[in-house]
Amino acid sequence: MDITFENVSYIYQQHSPFAHKAIDQLSFHIPSGTFVAIVGHTGSGKSTLIQHLNGLVQPTAGKVKIGDFELTAEKKPKHLKQLRSKVGVVFQYPEHQLFEETVAKDISFGPKNFGVGDSEIQRRVTEALQAVGLSADYVERSPFDLSGGQMRRVAIAGVLATKPNVLVLDEPTAGLDPRGQKEMMEMFYERHRSEQLTTILVTHSMEDAVTYADHVIILNKGSKYMEGKPEEVFVQKEALQQVQLDVPEMVAFINRWNEKFHTKLPFTKQSERELATAITAVLKGGKSHE
């Protein structure tokens, strides 16, 4: 599903002394099937933005289009449930939303609310568990007896089981250890490709944005600050620093290398291996570059 924001603004606690603009005149377009990373420091409006994607909040001005659905300030949103069945949201620390007695029941909760039939639900539970890397032995266990990492997987399976076309991920790897983080991102990426999803990843990790995203949107104070391919956006060190963001470590290193050695090595999302080869070429080539 294509996603379009047209001059969207959202005022938090409108008509109260505490009103403030969380989203300000935001416009962008995400074609169906894209993997988008949304980056910005805490308070830049990321959470508010994603709440527009499944109608948890309604814009106070402008228009949000998700496929055929439209959200505007004027009209009371219709068919919200249908929209939510198409847009799955994995919130931060999603394990906090678990509540059922068994893993299977919790995963079925979403599909059941969206009116999926029993046999289909059962098929989906099995499939979702497998997708998040848990064995079928877990179905009858209580989610509250699992480890933190396993609980998170169950919660994510609960979202995947609704078979969304758009998958929204709000810092899905927060609090996991490095291996857990990598496995989880790989899992989402695999899902993105196999199901032809439109994926929207809110992240603080420039590395994840570079590795997985086709397109990056940088938010600042509720507005779009930059937008483009990761290898174009993430090389703009000064601009990123202005909004308290870092460049990926690879970019930082290449910058300093270029300064010190007077070279012009580009950032092309290369691997450490490829970078090492390029550096070696410069070193072995002697001082020819000067």
Partner: peptide
């Protein structure tokens, strides 16, 4: 053991492998 390798360490390793 499930930990990460920092960028700088893996770059150093790659450099060694390419003969630096």
């Amino acid at each position: 053991i499930g930990l990460d390798v920092p960028f700088i360490a893996s770059l150093a390793k790659a450099l060694k492998q390419t003969g630096i």
